[in-house]
Amino acid sequence: MEILLAIMVGTLYAAGIYMILRRSLVKLIIGIILLGNGANLLIFLLGRIAKGQPPIIPEASKTFLEAYSDPLPQALILTAIVISFGLQSFAIILVKRAHKVVKTDDLDEMNATDEYS
């Protein structure tokens, strides 16, 4: 299962970087979303996957004898999801405004020094 998730992380990173390198602003946002999801999955994978094991130490034991899920990466992922949602919302509104002013989403055409009203 972990090898499948590692392949998925690599695929998300590759697709995200490919989309970021395109000339369209919409593809740039999609690339940022894919890259963020790949990072979240990577953090989740680093926390070890232990199916059916709680991330809580029983009161009677002082150490873990079995595999367990680490709760810290899960909490970090929840925080990262909220932050990435805010970034994506801001980027979508910014692209919408830029498209309204410049009438294009091509980054090469937006690179002009002319002022738009």
Rank of each mutant, 00 (worst) to 15 (best):
G31Q: 02
G16Q: 01
P73D: 03
N40I: 09
I83R: 01
R97V: 15
L72C: 06
Y18A: 11
G16V: 00
E115V: 09
L35Y: 00
G36K: 02
D70R: 03
V101H: 05
I43E: 00
N111L: 13
I7Y: 08
H99G: 06
I33R: 06
L76C: 05
S89T: 11
L5E: 02
A91C: 10
T79W: 10
D108H: 14
I93G: 06
Y68D: 02
A80V: 04
P58E: 15
I92K: 02
T79C: 10
E115L: 12
G36Y: 02
G10W: 03
A14H: 09
I20R: 11
I56A: 09
K27W: 09
L41M: 09
L94R: 15
K96C: 15
G16T: 00
I32K: 08
A91L: 13
K100W: 03
G31T: 03
I30Y: 06
L107C: 08
A60C: 08
V102G: 03
H99I: 05
S24D: 15
F44H: 05
G52T: 03
V82Q: 14
L107V: 12
H99P: 01
M8Y: 05
L25A: 06
A80Q: 09
G31I: 01
Y116F: 14
K62M: 07
K62H: 07
E59T: 10
Q53N: 13
I77C: 06
I49V: 11
A50N: 04
I93S: 07
I56D: 07
T63I: 03
E59M: 05
S24C: 06
E109W: 04
E66Q: 12
T11G: 09
V9Q: 01
A50E: 00
R97T: 12
L25W: 03
Q74W: 09
Q53S: 15
A98E: 03
T104L: 04
A80L: 12
A15C: 11
T113F: 12
L87W: 00
T63D: 11
D108C: 12
L65F: 12
Y116I: 03
L107M: 14
Y13W: 04
T11F: 14
I3G: 06
G31L: 04
D105K: 07
A98P: 00
V102N: 08
K96Q: 15
I56H: 08
A98C: 10
L4V: 11
S24T: 10
E66I: 13
K103F: 03
R97P: 01
E66T: 12
Q53L: 11
T63S: 05
N37R: 11
G36M: 05
K103D: 04
K27L: 15
G38Q: 02
L25D: 00
E2Y: 14
L107Q: 06
K62A: 09
L34Q: 02
L65I: 10
H99N: 10
T11N: 07
I33D: 11
L25N: 02
G38R: 00
G10E: 03
L42D: 02
Y18L: 05
T113A: 14
L107A: 12
A39H: 15
A39K: 10
G38L: 01
L12E: 01
S89N: 08
G10M: 01
I77W: 00
A75N: 15
L76A: 09
M1K: 07
K96S: 15
I43L: 08
L42H: 04
